[in-house]
Write a protein that binds this DNA or RNA. Structure first.
Lengths: 203, 203
DNA sequence: GTCTATAGAGCGATAGAC
DNA sequence: GTCTATCGCTCTATAGAC
């Protein structure tokens, strides 16, 4: 396959994503983004007006991907237990493909106000998600113990996401190279849903 | 009580900690640290030679506090279950007093190599901790299910630390003000050890 | 030890030619 | 749309007076 012909705006965006995700807003330099994209600084400002606006467009996209992927899984029309296993499996796949994304999302949250959250409707998407309803219903039926949906979702998200945020530390403590880390994550494909379901079922 | 007479080096360190923890290495400016400390930039370099060395001394201290506090709890001479409840309780207290520390630690891990980890002996401290031994022994006795100590410790740490790393997001999703967030954390004082113990006990 | 003043490099942004 | 050249600012670090 020959070289993809990608328009300049896309090239800049891809370069910016790479550099911002690796170095953060302050650590990323427009010169490096320009070099990575194979263009000059003037073009960055031609397309995005400023470093800040370029960053915002990258961050909004990443945020959308990070939560959108979770929201989709959380709203699947599957029974509670099946869903928890699926969320774990699919979201870990997503994180393996985007290992730096959690750190990137977390590092900048708050610093930009809560506009991104509001625009994407994250609040209602979680609070009124299918998973939240299932947790309430199954508890009413006496099938699981009662738990606040927000607590449960943060419990689940934290367990999925934390090893990626703390990757160097985890790798060091566990003496893991890249393959070892991957294995560590894969062990959690059963560990996490097993733990969550065992907890929910015990009344 | 009158003004504390604090020596200049300490004043600088305290100012630096505050600014670095809030803005990260790149985002922190030596001008702001100097202003915060009530001195001028020349003095920062007189005492610490450079921004980088000042940062390193702050980071090493924070790292030591973050892991040292955990290591101490993990090596207590108490039975497994009691210990897990104690770790949760005491470490959440620690995090409530230092809510920005997890983000600060996580943001910079890896970027400085693994020297800090090595120097502090974090690896052996966790791998050969009393908690790790207890997990192995209790599993051999058939009192709990077998689990790799590293997995368990990351499970525990992630659940304790994650809400602080994702604080804005958690607060937004759960519609929590500062008091609400505090309550959210306090609910986890029972939630986390309950979940962990339920999981360990179920064979 | 602490200050002022400034060096010297790097930053984001833009003017203006093509 | 894309480039080169450069502006004006801010950054960290240091020289030198006290």
């Amino acid at each position: 396959m020959a070289e993809e012909t990608v328009d300049t705006e896309t090239k800049i965006k891809e370069a910016a994503r790479k550099v911002f995700v690796e170095y953060g807003y302050e650590g990323a330099k427009v010169r490096q983004i320009a070099e990575e994209a194979g263009v000059n600084i003037a073009l960055l400002n031609y397309y995005f007006r400023s470093k800040e606006q370029l960053f915002d467009s990258i961050y909004a996209e990443a945020f959308h991907s990070f939560f959108g992927t979770m929201m989709k899984l959380v709203n699947e029309e599957t029974p509670l237990e099946v869903k928890i296993w699926q969320i774990t499996d699919k979201y870990l796949d997503f994180l393996i493909d985007n290992p730096m994304m959690p750190s990137f999302i977390m590092a900048q949250q708050g610093k930009k106000g809560t506009d991104f959250f509001t625009k994407l409707g994250v609040k209602s998407m979680i609070g009124s998600s299918r998973l939240a309803k299932q947790l309430v219903e199954e508890a009413e039926k006496g099938n699981i113990r009662p738990i606040k949906p927000t607590q449960f979702i943060i419990l689940m998200m934290g367990n999925l996401v934390f090893p990626f945020i703390a990757r160097s530390i985890v790798s060091f403590i566990g003496d893991l190279d890249e393959t070892g880390f991957r294995e560590f994550i894969n062990e959690r494909r059963t560990l996490i849903p097993d733990m969550l379901m065992t907890f929910l079922r015990k009344r």
